[in-house]
Simulated scan of single mutants.
Amino acid sequence: MRGYWKRPEETAEALREGWLHTRDLGRLDADGYLTLVDRIEGNIRRMDGDVHTAVVERVLESHPLVRDAVVPGVPDADLVEHVHAVVVPAAGTCVRTRVLRELVRAELGDVYVPTGVTPTTELPLTPIGKPDKTELRRRIVLANGE
């Protein structure tokens, strides 16, 4: 890669010292295989540990009554980020917040449990069709009056 088309600042950030910095997070297994698990932007930094939002999303989507789930980090009044889940229930169903929080607690532990769960009928998408976490975060902050 030589750079991003007509985006010199992003190119300078991504291409440094001969390396392409992708902003992906991964883990190496015992055999040396790399598994990509999330993006740095999808990482919520907390005092009690980092939360990889893609992991929480996968657990939420494993519930049969959840069609889609997105987990943005949402700041409180003190700018501390909290795990918040936005879920699209399966057609014709609803799922209780308590059930989803307990599912995450059982699978991942307390650090990953969403402090809030917002149901929605559809997710806002970016121009390339990915869930728009920035827009979701904005909506949640507005709804909370912060």
Rank of each mutant, 00 (worst) to 15 (best):
G92A: 05
R137D: 01
G129V: 10
V59I: 11
T22L: 15
N43G: 05
E102Q: 15
T121P: 06
L60H: 09
V88D: 09
I40A: 15
P89T: 10
E41G: 14
R98P: 04
R39A: 06
G32A: 04
G3I: 00
P75N: 02
E9V: 07
H52P: 03
R105Q: 14
D132V: 04
V83C: 06
T120C: 15
H21A: 07
R139Y: 01
R139A: 06
D29N: 12
A14K: 01
R2Q: 13
D29L: 02
I44E: 03
D31E: 14
V74F: 00
A77R: 14
E13Q: 11
P75A: 00
E13L: 13
H21S: 05
R105A: 11
L20D: 08
H52E: 14
D38I: 02
P119R: 12
P8F: 01
E9I: 03
A54W: 03
D76G: 00
E135H: 05
D78I: 05
G73D: 02
Y33V: 13
E10A: 14
R27S: 15
P64M: 06
S62N: 09
Y33T: 14
E135M: 10
T93Y: 02
P8G: 03
R27T: 15
V70P: 01
V51S: 00
V141Q: 00
G145P: 05
L65H: 10
E122C: 11
R58Y: 08
D48W: 10
P8Q: 02
D132G: 04
L65I: 02
V70A: 09
P75V: 00
E81H: 11
V66W: 07
T134V: 13
H21K: 11
V71D: 06
L25H: 07
L100V: 10
T126E: 08
L123I: 12
I44D: 04
R67M: 15
L28T: 11
V99I: 13
P64N: 03
T53W: 08
P131V: 06
G32E: 09
P64Q: 07
L28Y: 13
L100D: 05
V117C: 09
H52W: 10
R23Y: 07
D68H: 15
T120W: 02
L79C: 05
M1K: 06
L25W: 02
R27H: 12
R16G: 04
P72W: 02
V70Q: 03
K133H: 04
L100I: 10
T126L: 05
A54L: 09
A30E: 12
E102M: 11
V83N: 04
R46Y: 09
P89K: 08
E61P: 00
M47K: 13
R58P: 01
V66L: 10
R96Q: 15
C94Q: 14
E57V: 03
H52V: 05
H52C: 07
D76T: 01
L79D: 13
H21P: 00
H63S: 11
R98T: 12
L100F: 13
R105D: 11
A30Y: 09
V99H: 11
Y33W: 14
T97N: 10
A14I: 04
P8K: 01
G26D: 06
R101V: 08
L60D: 05
E107I: 06
R58C: 03
R98K: 14
A69D: 08
D68P: 09
V55P: 01
N144C: 07
V80N: 10
L136F: 04
T134I: 09
V51R: 01
L142W: 00
V113A: 07
T35M: 06
V117M: 08
A143H: 02
